[in-house]
């Protein structure tokens, strides 16, 4: 989102910057200060709304987003919105899509959305089933890398060595112990579905473009949006975008697209930074820099970043671990 010297700002006009954006997720919601997920959801659903002229139905898994947006008697959504359970959003969305087909309303597009807990863990079965059947559903995962709604417990999306309420580091334990983390975009790719993309709230034009593409395709689609959480990650509320940006810049959150199981595009990192810069900005990694920090901790994460950079061809070079 740079303001080029040659291009007029107008050329970068996003749905989010338009004065009449849909505000599908409106004010008065109970998301925390600086909530990345609230922003990510509004950006994504607004983009889909604009692209379809408002013909969308949103199915929401249980989680932060669901709890803070629809709490009787206050509903923050300006789209038809259906919440059933924690682990079944993809299946509910399948049902919605089937019903629309039955009614001859397939011009109405179906979106299922959930956090990383419902996507990576409890809802993985339903998600995989939806992918497998290639149901006409766009699934959007808002990834804040832990169970935030219940108080920051480890999820399948929690990065290695991160501190959560269930991975509290001590003398003999360095934090969440998965080796490389569960990679749901790759799992989605393995299903061969027509479209997969990762996106970030630090790059709204890119996020909108990916949602726009995704909503136009029929069949199962998966968009994975990185949404930092100030409370769970331990950084000032004002730095949500900055943290999201650093995650991209260090290679830990690759931005790419895949079609029918094959990677087709990736976003080059403009100024590659060491993962340390990203990690240091968050308290969940503070123990990696303390007196008792193991020597190789940062290296573990740098290696993940490096392999992302290679795998997704994010940059000309990598940084030494």
């Amino acid at each position: 989102m740079s303001y080029s010297t040659l291009k007029d700002v107008e050329e970068f006009t996003t749905v989010q910057s338009s004065h009449d954006r849909p505000n599908t997720l409106t004010s008065g919601h109970r998301g925390c200060q600086g909530c990345g997920e609230a922003l990510g959801a509004r950006c994504a659903i607004d983009a889909a709304h604009r692209e379809t002229n408002g013909k969308i139905i949103v199915v929401n898994a249980t989680g932060c987003l669901e709890v803070f947006t629809c709490y009787f008697p206050e509903n923050s959504w300006n789209v038809p919105w259906l919440h059933s359970l924690f682990g079944n959003a993809p299946a509910v969305a399948t049902g919605v899509a089937a019903a629309l087909r039955r009614q001859g309303r397939d011009d109405v597009r179906v979106i299922a959305q959930g956090g990383d807990g419902s996507t990576f863990d409890i809802g993985m079965g339903c998600l995989s089933g939806m992918f497998d059947r290639n149901d006409d559903v766009l699934y959007i995962c808002y990834d804040n890398q832990a169970y935030m709604n219940t108080g920051v417990q480890r999820s399948g999306a929690t990065p290695p060595l991160a501190r959560t309420a269930t991975t509290l580091p001590n003398k003999s334990y360095m934090g969440s112990d998965s080796q490389t983390g569960k990679n749901v975009p790759k799992i989605a790719m393995a299903h061969g579905i027509p479209y997969i993309a990762t996106a970030s709230i630090a790059n709204i034009p890119d996020l909108e473009e990916k949602v726009r593409r995704a909503i136009g395709i029929h069949g199962a689609r998966y968009v994975h949006i990185h949404v930092p959480c100030p409370l769970g990650w331990g950084y000032p509320t004002s730095e949500t975008i900055k943290i999201a940006r650093l995650a991209i810049q260090c290679g830990l959150f690759p931005l790419f697209e895949a079609e029918h199981g094959k990677q087709v595009r990736s976003t080059q990192i403009e100024d590659l930074i060491p993962v340390e810069e990203y990690l240091r900005s968050q308290k969940r990694f503070a123990h990696l820099f303390g007196k008792n920090a193991p020597a190789d901790a940062i290296g573990v994460l740098q290696n993940i970043a490096n392999s992302n950079i290679e795998l997704y061809r994010l940059s000309g070079g990598i940084l030494n671990a």
Binding site: T26, S27, G28, H29, R30, Q33, T69, C70, F72, P73, E74, N75, S76, W77, N78, V79
Partner: peptide, 18 residues
């Protein structure tokens, strides 16, 4: 009752008080 809500009703919740 209660599980179904009209759109955009959270505008009544003035979160500026936080």
């Amino acid at each position: 009752f209660a599980t179904v809500i009209e759109a955009g009703t959270s505008l009544g919740n003035h979160t500026g008080s936080w």
